[in-house]
Nucleic acid binder design. Structure first.
Lengths: 196, 196
DNA sequence: GTCTATATTTGGATAGAC
DNA sequence: GTCTATCCAAATATAGAC
């Protein structure tokens, strides 16, 4: 969709390069090469590198919102939807093994740069956080829904960081199983409390 | 100790700046300013920026080895020593909130740069991994000692990443309590199996 | 809208005086 | 061992032709 216009191509390539090589390490020349346009043409579409970053983050936000809506529709019960989140680690394991989590690594980098778009990047985390929190609330865990959401987010971040450091996909699979077990135990706990 | 010589000062300042601002984003000028020497003097002590990074990683490796040996001496039982690891998140919570985990963020950055010193940085993770694994083995969990070690490492990485993104120290405290609970449940499981 | 050419700045690195 | 001066390459950004 986005890829049809030159601007769309730029955002698409920048998105991938920022993920694979980092924001600061990716130069205009890299993006220009990738999109097959001249460096000069660039500035017709964006005033600065920061503007490209903004566009990339906005695109990621939109993609994430769409994905969460899809999960919401496709998953019958809240626990099925939470499983969609956990399974994302499996679906993207090849990329995660090579480049880590696109959200976590971007937030980490922007924090060190003290970059103006930090807040926007963190909003990516917030999308998952509030969505997961809502699913847990639907399961009757209103009281600690946000804590459960943050716990699950943290688990997936840790898995991504170590899977990348040790270049280990089997670790992802192993931890995903444990996260599913954890979810089941939380459901059991919920049902137990609900029946009291 | 290291801080007495100019070389030591450079490594010390570079270590802090690499942690707070990232390796690539930290320039020679930044380090020179911090150490209060001229940029030229620099090259008497190191041939390149990469060499400084190597020195920083070696210093961190040594500091980590010393810390692990200290924990080994100070902690009576293996579970006490593992608690030392978990408590590290509390001891360093102010820094973690601002800059994340020094090991995780360095490994993540070097991976994106595809930097030659990646392997050395990952060795920092390996130190914790093998040390934790040994503690779990001492608890009689030889079979899954490494998995337990990786699980704990991942948990702490995830906590650091999210605590930094959301600038939230209370999240660290909350998750540390849960990690201690998890450790207790693992000990219970171990004792149960041991008595069968 | 896209190109080439170029200005400007920064950062890593060297030379040589002291 | 430390300094100043300088070189060189890379990266962001601009100007202006087509």
């Amino acid at each position: 969709m986005k890829g049809k216009t030159t601007r769309g191509h730029i955002v698409e390539s920048a998105d991938r390069l920022f993920y694979q090589c980092g924001y600061e390490h990716t130069s205009f020349a890299d993006i220009a090469d990738s999109v097959q346009i001249s460096k000069g043409n660039f500035y017709y579409h964006f005033k600065s590198k920061d503007e490209i970053l903004d566009a990339v983050i906005q695109a990621r936000l939109e993609n994430t919102r769409n994905m969460l809506m899809r999960w919401e529709v496709e998953g019958e019960r809240p626990e099925d939807r939470i499983k969609s989140f956990i399974q994302m680690l499996i679906a993207n394991q090849a990329d995660i093994k090579m480049y880590g989590c696109p959200v976590g690594t971007l937030c980490t980098e922007l924090a060190k740069l003290n970059h103006a778009s930090q807040a926007e990047a963190i909003e990516l985390f917030t999308l998952f956080r509030t969505w997961l929190s809502r699913q847990f609330a639907l399961l009757g865990r209103d009281a600690d829904a946000d804590e459960l959401a943050m716990h699950l987010l943290a688990r997936s971040q840790g898995v991504a960081t170590l899977a990348q450091a040790f270049r280990d996909e089997s670790f992802i699979k192993h931890e995903v199983r444990q996260m599913c077990d954890w979810l089941s135990s939380q459901l059991a706990q919920t049902n137990q409390e609900g029946s009291q």
